[in-house]
């Protein structure tokens, strides 16, 4: 398992619709990502970058191809097993935050731990410390509607982190934020990657944000066009 790459996509194709309206969101994508990498995926809209992220996150299943996570063939897993995989290994950050409405930051962050079967006190403790990591412990009792976009996204990051995942998958995490907040978010993600070795795969269309990553994957028309190490690769 240690010698297998963390994420290993081979000839992954994802087709939406059929016949004339068929859309090839992913077309024979080969991609490996190792433990501890901070990868940015860029590309014009419709290039399949979000689909790639969803496939990696087991939120969407490929039409064909082989996807191994930690050496495990994903296609062989049932829906419930995929849920377990997400529960224990993956964390998500979405462009639209996707927090539960009318639910405090603390309880939003606590959510993944409920399904991990932790006791209430353990959950709240972990949720508090995850909020602290994103600098929001003073906002724990606030509902999403009482938080700014940047704060909501940091809550979402805390939620992604709280279960100690191997990989955090972020789909345009700064898409709805201004530059200042975006940089704050990126610094949080970069810090997590540097300090804890957390693997991060992020989709973005902003080059400035991609610059925080160590590796840049450029997609066009469902294919990987460029794949390069950037910045100060550690």
């Amino acid at each position: 398992m240690s010698d297998a790459p963390l994420i290993d996509l081979r000839k992954i194709t994802r087709v939406y619709g059929s016949g004339a309206s068929e859309v090839r969101a992913l077309d024979n994508v080969d991609l490996t990502i190792d433990d501890g990498e901070f990868v940015a995926i860029m590309g014009p809209s419709g290039s399949g970058k979000s689909t790639a992220l969803n496939v990696i996150g087991c939120l969407d299943s490929p039409t064909s191809g082989e996807y191994r996570f930690c050496g495990t063939e994903i296609a062989s897993l049932t829906r419930d097993q995929l849920a377990l995989l997400r529960r224990h290994y993956l964390g998500f950050v979405f462009q639209g935050y996707n927090l539960l409405a009318r639910t405090s930051a603390l309880h939003n962050v606590e959510l993944p731990l409920i399904y991990k079967g932790l006791s209430r006190s353990e959950r709240l403790k972990a949720a508090h410390s995850a909020l602290a990591k994103v600098g929001l412990e003073h906002r724990a009792r606030h509902d999403p509607s009482e938080l700014s976009g940047g704060q909501q996204q940091r809550v979402a990051i805390a939620r992604a982190l709280v279960g100690s995942p191997r990989v955090v998958l972020a789909d345009e995490p700064t898409g709805n934020l201004d530059t200042k907040r975006s940089i704050e978010i990126m610094e949080v993600l970069q810090g997590l990657n540097r300090e804890t070795g957390l693997t991060i795969v992020m989709v973005t269309h902003e080059r400035d944000m991609a610059a925080f990553a160590d590796r840049l994957i450029w997609m066009v028309d469902g294919r990987v066009e460029r794949d390069e190490q950037i910045g100060k690769a550690a």
Partner: peptide, 12 residues
């Protein structure tokens, strides 16, 4: 969708 994404099983 959110609950499924964070690892809930459909039955839960």
């Amino acid at each position: 969708g959110i609950r499924l994404a964070v690892g809930a099983q459909a039955n839960q």
